[in-house]
Design a protein around this nucleic acid. Structure first.
Lengths: 232, 232
DNA sequence: TGCCGTGATCTGTGATCACAGTTAGAGTTG
DNA sequence: CAACTCTAACTGTGATCACAGATCACGGCA
């Protein structure tokens, strides 16, 4: 081991296997809502698009199936699960409990770097949504960045991982709806809640942080539920 | 479809694919602590034991890797992750928060059937652990049964699923330790906490239920941490 | 005797083939 | 013109083969 030690630091910790990359791509598709609930996904077609054989896609899909982000129907058809209103309510309740808890933990354990990252993410999203013609996909991405900046500040990798899995499930429903009805973005609810959350975390106040995140989540959920586009 | 309709009800909802069965077997091995942290797992060897080709094992393993219940080292070796003390503390904190929350929800939403299942599970574990020579693997299984009877009473499938994933991570550490040092079982801490939890849920008192589960989890965790067998 | 190079044998990853089951569409029949 | 049937083209699942990289033990050199 007489190599320049600096190289060891640059070395990426995650193995760049094809299956990993396929997983990342599919997960991003789900989180950003570019895959609609009920949409079918062919392994071979996906493999064609990604330019690999079906093997890496199979691995990625089986991971997503394990997380219930995809499901394979008894007819052997892989698709994005269609969520009933009851399931969506359950998911929302769990998200409020867990993401709210993460925000509270963030308020307790955040350091200055976390705070800077959260402020940066909040500013970026505010700027984008105050534009006269906001870039919707970008806004979705910035929203994700803000939320996870908060959750990362809890310094609990396990919590962050759980929330990631929740977003995988919620993404198709929420962001698909947002794409269809972008007016909520202009209403500025999210922007206000984000500011509340940032302030609470800066002030080390766990309960207001929890409430801010809860309001953000339930606000978006209520819009979707009131639209009545969900099954059952 | 002129078959006896009753058969459709018996039909298991989960497709009985070989990969599914391999996953179930490996998951059970992990939860019950029969796979120790750091232990390596060869795909081909496992496939041999299960009597199938490596394909179903690959699917099962990639699911477990997605849940962080297994990890593939940069050397391409699949093994049970070795947990540092810090990681175990994080896991314990998250478990207390989430499983405590589930118990509180159970107190609010349980029905009589849930209550009966919880009481049955509690009695079974109490009987087993009060024996002069308790069957350890059976006690581990009964402990799991009791906890999940509680969590199921929350009537939140998503919450239960998350907790399952947490147990997959905690199983190797906790149950391996229990196998090595069974005296804690005789001490009866768990038995007492279980009774507290059952009573609280029966009385529809969320906070005592949460505290009971939290005490159970942190009690077991402290024993393990004080033993000092964890890395770092 | 101690150390280093080297090859056989493992590892997981990826591709390809085989198969049973489903689906959809074309062709035919009523 | 509508409905039914049958076939052809899909679907995921499983097995097998090929490959690059890591590990480890054996043998040769210092």
């Amino acid at each position: 081991m007489n190599l320049p030690a600096a190289l060891n630091l640059v070395e990426p910790l995650d193995r760049q296997t094809l299956g990993e990359r396929a997983y990342a791509q599919l997960a991003d598709l789900l989180m950003s809502g570019r895959l609609a609930p009920g949409e079918k996904l062919s392994l071979r077609a996906a493999a064609d698009v990604l330019g690999v054989s079906i093997m890496p896609v199979r691995e990625a899909v089986s991971r997503l199936v394990a997380d219930r982000a995809l499901e394979v129907a008894p007819n052997r058809a892989v698709r994005v699960p269609v969520m009933t209103a009851a399931q969506f309510r359950d998911l929302t309740k769990v998200r409020i409990a867990i993401e709210g808890h993460a925000a509270a933990e963030a308020a307790l354990h955040r350091n200055e770097d976390d705070l800077a990252a959260i402020a940066r993410a909040e500013a970026a999203m505010r700027d984008e949504s105050e534009k006269s013609k906001p870039d919707l996909p970008r806004a979705v991405e910035l929203n994700k960045t803000f939320h996870f900046a908060v959750y990362e500040a809890s310094h609990s990798p396990i919590l962050v991982e759980i929330i990631r899995a929740l977003w995988l499930k919620a993404g198709p429903v929420i962001n698909l709806d947002l794409r269809a009805n972008p007016e909520r973005l202009a209403k500025g609810d999210a922007i206000r809640f984000h500011a509340d959350v940032r302030r609470a975390i800066a002030a080390r106040e766990p309960d207001p942080a929890r409430r801010g995140v809860a309001a953000d989540i339930s606000g978006a959920a209520e819009v979707i539920l009131s639209r009545g586009g969900l099954a059952d």
